[in-house]
Amino acid sequence: MPEPGKTLDIDTSPHLKSGASVDIIMRNVVVALLPISVFAIYLFGLAALVTLIAATLSCVLTEHLLCRANDKPSTVGDWSVVVTGVIYGLTLPPGLPVWMVIVGGVTGVGLGKFLFGGLGYNAFNPALIGRAFLQAAFPVAMTSWYAPLAADRFVTLPSSTLTLPFATPVYDVLTGPTPLAALKFDGDVTATGDLLLGLTSGSTGETGAVLILAGGLYLIARNMMNWRIPAAILLTVFVLSWIFHRIDPGSYPDPVFMLFAGGLMLGAVFMATDMVASPMTGLGCALYGLLIGALVVVIRLWGGMPEGVMYAILLANAFSPHIDNLIRPRVYGTQRRESP
């Protein structure tokens, strides 16, 4: 490799580059995820810490080992798999057995990313593939939640975290339902204040809505995230649930609850915006966000499950190439309309 500055570089345009390569963007995403992770550890203690570490390590190691096994240079250095791992960890319930965390991480990166050809070729968000696999494989463990702010959370690990591999986890503390489950199965509405502050039970990192929004704004300000996707998702969910709430306030929750409960914030800001699995054009992103938002509302209001953000995003991922096919940018210099 010639030393820079001493040779004449001959290259095609563009010649002015912003310098935002994959690893710089991904490192910024990790920075944006840090406060959320810290807050998750504050809420759920050691359980969240162990889950996050296991999730990140299992994803990074899977990618590294698969690259090595295929005699390819390891792609761990581009930080994208670290982002996948942290996001994956944030979507898991704290106290999920470590062995299940590892199974999901290996599946997500191996099946959801590597088999498709690695970064840039994955049709679906790998973190969500891992989580979806776990949801289908271990439905009980994936819907057992610990209450936040337990008194001994920094000194003891919940018994379920350290379950032996392939064994059924045993939960020593009675678990608390998430706000959405409480609404769906018992008809209890969680106080909006608790929702905003994130002081509810739920996945490790889905509760701190304010911090998630702050992280998203940071990335948008640095032009590293397409603001249209989260904006379209949140707007669609808000408008649709407002309409249904107006029709029948008794059976449909109010729009603020819908926005801040469950994994919507985390999903809209950090998972739907996966650069590979989302559409390329601005209009396409808006359409994609609209689809996710509508699916979330449909699954939450009429589906059998309390939460639908994961499936909504995975389904929309599947649509995203077709959206790109439908909305193609006009090639510069060509006619606006087909000339007669």
Binding site: A136, L164, A167, T168
Partner: peptide
């Protein structure tokens, strides 16, 4: 085949498990 504590992977007996 396993002791009582074995955690079944439900996905494997669902249609998705067939594909996997």
């Amino acid at each position: 085949l396993f002791p009582e504590a074995f955690q079944p992977w439900v996905v494997m007996i669902l249609p998705g498990g067939g594909f996997f």
